[in-house]
Design a protein around this nucleic acid. Structure first.
Lengths: 117, 117
DNA sequence: TATTTGATCAACCGATTGGTTGATCATCTA
DNA sequence: TAGATGATCAACCAATCGGTTGATCAAATA
């Protein structure tokens, strides 16, 4: 259980790496929906869609409640926030590196802009 | 070629769904590195690491330059930004939904907090 | 109670993935 | 020029994935 966060992060990223599952996320962003409602526009069997939903649930990206025999799905904002936080961390570092490299280059070849004109 | 963006997004998310590849991203956040340098701390053959790097490159998450026989890798901030933008969009919507639901619930059962005490 | 409906479980299958070993390529260097 | 080095290519393998069909379950309804 020591790498529980790691596998959770794995599952979340992999889950988003499928266009069907991203379409489900997009649909849920307009409000909760049942399995049948989510499956309706997708050219796939209900069981197939159900599997995709389970992947999203195991990744923590969605949660499910119970309403009689229906199982409404909801987006989980907290999980999405964890993903953006992870990516954003490295994004900012990469951007900082790029700016630093840029300043080094302009310091080495200060006439570059003029020459290109 | 109509769904080029879609498959690019697929590849990027799937690429991040592997702890080895995320470790490579983390290493590159401290500056560019060659294949050998990236492979050194990873308990895997050089060919295995090379494959992971190719996955990251095809996903657009890293770029590669040439320095003699070396192929230094660099983080691609632009690709990371596209990912955060995608996730953040739905995250914000989900949070807004949650707040709205919250306000509806407190409006329906205004005495809930008191009863639970 | 019998039937329909929403959803899952189980088994299967082809395609893809993640890793290996062995060979090869291209560049650097003695 | 002859090795040594950085990196990739090719073939293979076990495991996982994405989808199907068929059976089943539990709740709603006639």
């Amino acid at each position: 259980m020591i790498d529980e966060d790691e596998t959770r992060l794995d599952r979340a990223f992999v889950a988003l790496g499928d266009p069907v599952r991203r379409a489900i996320i997009a649909r849920l962003s307009r409000g909760p929906a049942t399995v049948n409602e989510l499956a309706e526009p997708i050219p796939m069997t209900l069981q197939g869609v159900s599997k995709h939903i389970q992947v999203l649930e195991q990744a923590g990206l969605i949660t499910r409640s119970r309403d009689g025999q229906r199982r409404p799905c909801h987006l989980n904002a907290v999980a999405l926030e964890a993903l953006t936080a992870w990516i954003d961390n490295y994004r900012l570092i990469a951007e900082r590196q790029f700016r630093r490299l840029d300043s080094v280059l302009t310091a080495i070849t200060p006439m570059q802009e003029e020459e290109e004109k």
